[in-house]
């Protein structure tokens, strides 16, 4: 719960991890990985966000309830993305069949 005191050494380690990930994401951007570029960038961003949420924001030491709500927030975001995109991906599919 909120009373859990995380030692500064953990914070410093997490900060080290975040710095390494940040350098990695900048460096990787200069390599041509094709479609993998955004995938790598987003994976690193998600890892960084996880580190911040779990340690800086104490979620690793909080109740299940907190974890559920945090997960819920991100899950709803995915709902929005996954249901908006099909429209844009498939909108052109039928166009050639229309005679005018």
């Amino acid at each position: 719960m909120a009373q859990h005191v995380v030692p500064p050494s953990t914070y410093v380690k997490v900060f080290g991890g975040l710095t390494i990930l940040m350098i990695l994401t900048v460096v990787m951007a200069f390599f041509n990985l094709g479609v993998l570029n955004p995938v790598v960038a987003l994976t690193i961003a998600i890892l960084k966000a996880l580190l911040i949420v779990l340690f800086f924001m104490n979620v690793k030491y909080s109740s299940k309830l907190t974890m559920i709500f945090v997960a819920c927030g991100f899950f709803w975001l995915l709902i929005m993305f996954f249901l908006i995109m099909p429209d844009y991906i498939s909108r052109e599919w039928l166009t050639p069949a229309i005679p005018w």
Partner: peptide, 29 residues
């Protein structure tokens, strides 16, 4: 009191996620 405050803050951040989420959805499209 503390547990309520923490839960309340997370719910607020949940709405913040969706607030910025709208912009990220626009970006994605």
């Amino acid at each position: 009191q503390n547990e309520s405050a923490v839960l309340g803050m997370w719910l607020f951040l949940g709405q913040e996620i969706m607030f910025f989420g709208g912009l990220f959805a626009v970006y994605l499209v």
